[in-house]
Amino acid sequence: MKARGSPLRRRGRRSVLRVFAIPAILFAASLAGLVLGLTGDGLRDALAWLLLSLPLLAIGVAWRRRGLPSRYRKT
């Protein structure tokens, strides 16, 4: 890591923990879904569908919040 005062050190930097907070949740949810589906039917399958859908949901949310090119913006 760079020392304090380096030009790369400025406000708005996030720690590795924060960068990986949501990805880690999605990672764990996906793995849990993959394994739960294997261990049984019924409720476990439904949980597997739900947990494995979270990555898709994350993409959907990000897409809704995307920054649009200026030509599409109402100004």
């Binding site: 994350a58 993409i59 090119p69 200026s70």
Partner: peptide, 26 residues
Amino acid sequence: GKLRLDRSRRVGRLDQHNLAGIVVLA
């Protein structure tokens, strides 16, 4: 999840690559 599609083509693509890649990782 930040998608900077209002920037250059390359930056927009890079953000999509990173987001899609990190969410399907597991």
